[in-house]
Structures are given as C-alpha cells and as structure tokens.
Design a protein around this nucleic acid. Structure first.
Length: 624
RNA sequence: GCCGCUUUAGCUCAGAGGUAGAGCAACGCUUUCGUAAAGCGUGGGUCAAGGGUUCGAAUCCCUUAAGCGGCUCCA
C-alpha cells in the first residue's frame, strides 16, 4: 500500500481508530507549530500502525526532540480542544493559505505553500473543509474525534524523510511518525507487539542462526548463504521440484551473462536499463578502448549504437528460456512447453533500497516460462495459481494479499500494442476469478512486457513484499518471433507465462524466517536433532544414536561439550533445534532416548526406532 | 540515488580530548552433571576506511564505505 494516497491528499478515513489517529496528526502539527511557528505542513494522514505528518522545517527533527514535542502534545490533549469543522469557500481558503494561516496557529509572513498546492489540486466539484482545534487551522477533509481529549494515548515513533507528493522531483520533507490509541494500555500493548516483531527480524535471526551473511569485501546486496541457510534453500528447492515434476515442468540451466543483443531484442536494454549493471565489454574491445583513451561517455555511446559489443549480467531469465524454446521448430503437440530454472539474476538497486535478504543486487528466482497456445492460457495460469497456493499453504503463509498489476498511464514504460495488453489483462482477471481468489487491481504495477498477478506478504515491520508472481506476456514472443506449427500446418504465435511461486529464494527465506520466528518446521530445520549426552560416559552411545539417525537422512549433531544438561538444553533451545535427544545412564542401558521437543517440551522416553519413525514421518509430510 | 541516524572484540553494548572496557561466545583446566546458564583461567581490537584539527583523537571536522529508518524504484 502506498503510504500517501493522492487525490485530495487525505486517505479515505473509515475506522474509528483511523479517525483518532488522524486527529493525533493534527495534535502533532499543533505541537510542532508551538515549538517552530515557521514550520510548513504538507499532509498528515493515518497509516497502517499510526499516523504521520510531513513537514518542512530548517531544524532537523530528531528523536531527541520527541520528549519536547510529546510534552506539548499531551498539553493539547489535556486542554480538550474541540475539533470544529469550518466550511469554507475555495477563494476564502486560498486567501487564508496565502496569508500563511492554513496549517498554522496564526497568520504568517510566508504563504502555506503546500496547503495552497493541495488546495489547488482538489477537484472543482469537491467541497473544501477546514478543521480547527485551538488556534490550529488546517485544510482537511476530516472527520475528526470530538476533541483532542479523545486521543487517550499518543507516542512519536520515528522520523524519516519523504518527497512531497511522493515524487522525487519534489522537495524533501521530514516525516514525523507516531502512533495513537484511545487508551494508554492499548498503546503499551502495541509497542510490546512491535518489540516482539523486531525479535523475529530475519536480519537478526539470519545472523544468530547462521543462515546467511553479508561481507563488505563481497559487496552490498550480495548475500553469502551459510551452510545452515543453504540447507533450508535446498529443502525449498527440492519441495518445489516435486511440485513442478507433477505439473509437467522441465528443468534447464542457463548462464549468468549473455550478449547485449539478446537484451536489445527482449527490450531489457533499454526498457529495464536503470535496474541493470552496465554492459561488460569483450576483452579485445576493452583493450582497444583503453589504447584509444576512450572515455566512459564515449564507451556508453558506442555500446548504445552497437559499435562495441558486450555482455549483460542477466537481470531476468526469460530471454535465455525463450532462446531454448526457439532452438528448434515446435509443434502444437508439445505445447505447453514449461521450462524451469532456479535462475540467479543481478539487478542494480540503488544503495538506499537494499535491505537484508528482501532487497538485493543478486538473487535467485524460482523461475519458469510456459510457452503455450492462446487457448491454453486459462488452464496454464490456473495451474500457476494452484502452484502458488500449494506453496503458501505448505509453508503456512496464509496472511497474503493478491494484486493484479495493470499498465500505468505512462505508455513509454511498456512494450507492445494496447490491444494485446487489454487481452492479457482480461485473461489474468478472469483466471483469478476462476480460481475464486480475492484480489485488488492496481494500475502501474505491471511488468514492462505484460500484466501480472502478485502475492504480497508483510515482514516483521509491516512492510509489504512481493513473493509469488504470475505474469502473462504476449509481447516477448513477438519480439523474438516465436512460432509453433499448428494442426492446420500453419505457423502460430505462442503466448508466454512468466511465473515464480517463491519469487526469489532470498526474499522467501526472509519472510519464512520472520513468519516462523526462526522456529522452522522440522523438514526445513538446518539441524533437526541434537543428541545431548548427560556425561562423557554416554558419548559413545550418543554417537551411535547420531549415526542411526543420520542413516535415516536426518540432520543431527552430538553436543560433546563438557557442560551440564541444562546448559546444553539452553544452547539447543536458543539455536531453535526442533528435537533434543537426551541420553544418560538409563537410556544407554535400555537403548532408549529421552526426547525433548522445542515446541512441546519433555516428550518422555522412547525407543530409538519410535523416535526416528516419528521425526522421519514429520519430515516426509512436511508438517508444520 | 535523496533525507536523517548509526558503525568500538565473533555477538550485544559501555567508554563525551590524555595509553581501549564489560557480558556472552571462543580456547584451556577443573567438574561428569537428568529437561533453559557449573567454577576458575587465557587469548582476542589499525575503535569501519582515508584525510584533517590538536602537544595528544575511539571522542572534534571532512570524505568514502557499509548498515538502519523512510522516500523513490522493484523478487
């Protein structure tokens, strides 16, 4: 969801809590004005977990200012200022803005520039309303609570920056975030939930559980999968591999770089240009350029014109899969052709956009491209949706939203004819309806070659990320001149479906880690069982048990440290090992195990066979 | 990329111009323990990197890098 919905600048306020938080934003604005009367206000809507107000102010607001601001806010709450709606004519409102009176406590020497701009952006047929509490008068669609006293508990959370109206060409504002509730208790509960959520952060757990690692020597946004993370990845890949085999996919492998010309044909160069690493020249060409003293600008021009050849680090796998399809004549009898690959791609993300495993410069998609005839599209898209559903259900990711991404208004961002786009957009919409799924349509969310269905989930901080995606593409088959021979012995144009149920393995791991808080189901757990000998006398038996478990392909280690049992349990618990098998004198003589589950505690004594069968079965069923 | 903040031992963090600290982890010794922390000891740092100010810089200033919170953009 966009933080700031444009239009008349305020989001549609529906719930009581949103109303309260919107009022809290006005209280924040009032407090800011009392401290810095020159502050220029832009917009202050409620958002997912609170509210914010965008302001322009020479003083850089920092968390150190929060106590002062919050103090003022509490005074305003205590004062119980009523929120009064003041209907106003357009001209009157504009006069107030010009006199600096909108978004202010009094008239000021400088006009309320943002309020003026917002005012002028409101459609003619919409009424203009102002709201006042105390001396603070603001352009606002409302509604508000009765009085400032209704805002029982308010807290500022952080300050960040944002472009005015979300456009990077506009001035940058300071965005002060806060949250508000009717009561102090609800606020405390909310803050506690936030703390808890931070404990699940995949960046923190990724380090603690040794799943992945970022090394400055390697580069920003380029993750190193550590052995434990690699186990999870391999399990995920194996799981998906089974599903794909069942749906008639074939596996392919393709290189990480390809001729620039390939990407000219696909349109990645230039339509995807800003997301790509610059071209890699051939060594001979590079030498010549160096000898000629060719500058970067010159090089860029020569690459652009095709005078100098080169390679591109692949930003997507589709062009290579397309070339595989085109590698020989295709008959309608073999359609659909479904080519799958865990394909690693590289994209130039701006430095400030990188973050943990959710946003990277190199990542691996569980990619596949389906080449089919027009009348197979519906069934194939349906199959893809079913695949995503199966993946999400197995991994318990139920809390997800489905978005149909359509073209936006800027036509230069998309390739192909509008009629084909309409056809593709309609086909996807009907496929989702057929699958009986709820979805929203959003313009401007399409890929450059076609519309798509995205599955979105939230991370521990409430940020929404795209995981699975299904994209319909009538355009690349045209650009590559793909054909198949139909039953009529004529050439026909195939349709392409791009799809990735995980999206990327890295982002999926991030979301999965946060979803389970690091407590992965047994089938995914890097270490499934840890044997805890009570004393060194049981070491040998412990190793025997481990060998037996390993024989059944379970991932097991023995804690051979000279520690107390309690300490060993504590360590295993912190490392979130699903099963601990305790072996002491008694277990050794009876050839049993005392089993402790991370989730359910002490499970009591059982035979080795009973334990192995139990865990192996859980793994085989991929139970949660 | 833009705005703001941050960077001290493997991890979490003290240290506010005068010779670098703690807890946990690691390692060693003692202990051989019954369902979430046994005891003692040892090693470990170009204080992110580079430059500057100063008699003297982890500390003040500048540049760069990485990370964090957002914005923009996207798996």
């Amino acid at each position: 969801m966009r933080a700031a919905e444009e239009g008349n600048n305020e989001r549609n306020i529906v719930t009581e809590l949103e109303t309260l938080r919107h009022s809290a934003a006005h209280i924040l604005a009032t407090a800011l004005l009392e401290i810095w009367p020159e502050v220029q206000l832009a917009a202050g809507p409620p958002v997912e977990n609170g509210f914010y107000y965008d302001v322009s102010l020479p003083h850089r607001i920092s968390p150190e200012d929060f106590p002062t601001i919050e103090g003022k806010m509490r005074e305003i709450v205590r004062a119980g200022q009523p929120f009064v709606c003041v209907p106003a004519g357009r001209e009157e409102a504009e006069k107030l803005a010009l006199r600096g009176r909108l978004g202010a406590l009094s008239e000021r020497p400088v006009p309320s520039e943002f309020k003026l701009d917002i005012l002028r952006g409101i459609p003619e047929d919409e009424p203009i309303t102002l709201y006042q509490n105390g001396e603070f008068l603001d352009l606002c669609a409302g509604p508000h609570v009765k009085s400032t006293a209704s805002v029982g508990a308010v807290r500022l959370t952080h300050v960040a920056s944002a472009y005015y109206r979300g456009d990077e060409r506009n001035p940058q504002l300071q965005r002060v975030y806060g949250t508000a509730f009717a009561t102090e208790r609800e606020l405390e509960e909310h803050l506690a939930r936030l703390e808890e959520a931070k404990r699940r952060d995949h960046r923190k757990l990724g380090r603690e559980l040794e799943l992945f690692y970022f090394d400055e020597a390697v580069g920003a946004g380029l993750p190193l999968w550590l052995p434990r993370g690699a186990v999870i990845r391999q399990e995920l890949q194996a799981f998906l591999g089974e599903l794909l085999a069942g749906q008639g996919y074939e596996t392919v492998f393709t290189p990480h770089i390809g001729e620039l010309g390939l990407y000219r044909t696909s349109g990645h160069f230039p339509f995807y240009r800003e997301s790509q690493y610059p071209p890699i020249p051939e060594p001979a060409a590079w030498e010549r350029l160096v000898q000629e003293g060719c500058g970067c600008g010159d090089y860029a021009n020569r690459v652009e014109s095709g005078a100098v050849g080169g390679y591109l680090l692949k930003p997507m796998n589709c062009p290579m899969h397309i070339r595989i399809f085109a590698s020989r004549p295709r008959s309608y009898r073999e359609l659909p052709v479904r080519l799958a690959e865990f394909g690693t791609v590289y994209r130039w993300e701006k430095s400030g956009e990188l973050g943990g495993m959710t946003r990277l410069r190199g990542f691996t998609q569980d990619d596949a491209h389906i080449f089919c005839s027009e009348d197979q599209v519906e069934a194939e898209v349906g199959g893809c949706l079913e695949l995503v559903r199966a993946v999400l259900a197995t991994l318990d990711l139920r809390d997800c939203r489905i978005r149909l991404g359509l073209r936006g208004p800027e036509s230069e961002k998309y390739i192909g004819e509008p009629e084909l786009w309409e056809k593709a957009e309609a086909a996807l919409a009907s496929a989702i309806r057929l699958a009986g799924l709820d979805f929203t349509q959003e313009a401007g969310e399409a890929a450059f070659y076609g519309p798509k269905i995205d599955f979105l989930v939230r991370d521990c901080l409430g940020r929404e990320w795209q995981l699975g995606t299904v994209q319909l593409d009538y355009n690349l088959p045209i650009r590559f001149g793909l054909t198949f021979v139909g039953s009529d012995n004529c050439e026909h144009r195939p349709v392409m479906i791009h799809r990735a149920p995980f999206g990327s393995l890295e982002r999926f791991l991030a979301i999965l880690t946060e979803h389970f808080g690091g407590d992965f189901p047994v089938w995914l757990a890097p270490e499934q069982v840890r044997i805890l000998p009570i004393s060194d006398l049981q070491l040998e038996y412990a190793r025997e048990v481990a060998a037996a478990l390993r024989h059944r392909r379970l991932r097991v280690t023995v804690d051979e440290k000279s520690e107390t049992l309690n300490a060993k349990i504590r360590i295993a618990e912190k490392q979130k090992i699903p099963y601990m098998a305790i072996v002491g004198k008694n277990e050794q003589s009876s050839k049993n195990l005392s089993v402790r589950s991370r989730r359910r505690g002490n499970l009591g004594v059982m035979t080795l066979t009973a334990f192995v069968d139990r865990v192996a079965e859980e793994v085989a069923r991929r139970s949660l």
